[in-house]
Amino acid sequence: MRLEPKPAPPLGVTLLFPVAAIAATLLITSLLVLAAGASPFSVFYLVARGAAGTQFAALETLTRATPLIFTGLAVAVAFRAKLWNIGAEAQLYIGGVVTIVLGTGALPLPSFLLIPLIMLAAMAAGALLLLGPAVLKTRFGVDEVVTTLLLNFIVLLFVSMLLEGPLKDPMGLGWPQSQRVVAEAQLPRIIQGKRLHYGFAISLCAAAIVWVIMKKTVLGYEMRAVGHNAEAASFAGIPVNRVLMKTALLSGGLAALAGFSEVSGLKGNLTLDLSPGYGYSGIVVAMLAMLNPLGVVASAIFVAGIFVGADAMSRTAGVPSYIADVMVATALLTMVTAILMSRFRVRWR
């Protein structure tokens, strides 16, 4: 078997890749559903209904999509410049830590000052966290896949230490959790009495801003040039290392916003289960979107829908909700395969 390059397909065909990948994913996972003794059709129907069948379900899906949009954008930005940031999970938690440190009464400010301030501080912390691996990569050639991945574990242990120590809520009955953020530091709900909060609106703005950066600005152009061909970019006078630094700052900052939005908009406090792997799911989201910032919104809602829908489905159909993890992972693999097939023709001989 060998691969031969082929010209890029037209845009219309390109848009079919995620659709084809999702169809293949359903096909593959239906085998597992059958193995679990249920009917794939009824299970997928229940997943879809659980994700979008009622107003409650749809709002829940959007709520779940919010952190995925942030981490998906973080990954899309970094991957576009071929900076392999696998550490969005760590950057998310750091964003959460900063939100707690500044948002539990340390700063007596009104909402319209406090919330932007916390956002900026959280972004700065996430940005700095990714700057380390970026410096190691450009200075010493250390593989950022390894450093960012390992930082996830380091940061999670660091947060665990904080929650057992300085940030531990004295009224928390001994649970490893932080104090709740003050009212001024909370993102309001979009609809009174529902869980969907303004973090979702902020994530949509972030997607639009990232789209503009990638499409219209010098920085986005430099990032794409470095990602596509760093040698040619460097020959043309683009400061490759500096562009990678800026990419790291932007990516880390976006991932940290996920932590901010979860703490400030939804959970109210910091615990060790703030994220069920949103940082990692962000990679799936970004790949399904083919690194397009606006596509990230759609694919984040899709991935969130599978998680939310699978929860609902497992309550009624008796198929474990782990099927959601399998579906999301399979979707990543089929999407990567679809992208490969779009660039290369497979020849058997």
């Binding site: 010098v218 152009y221 794409r224 040039a225 061909n229 040619a232 970019a233 006078g237």
Partner: peptide
């Protein structure tokens, strides 16, 4: 050249920072 970028994106590669092609960070 950068093979996966367009002809337009490639011709400005050495001069995209000049006032002719960008203003205030926008291309």
């Amino acid at each position: 050249t950068i093979g996966d970028m367009s002809v337009t994106e490639n011709v400005i590669l050495e001069r995209y920072r000049s006032a002719r092609f960008s203003r205030l960070g926008f291309l």
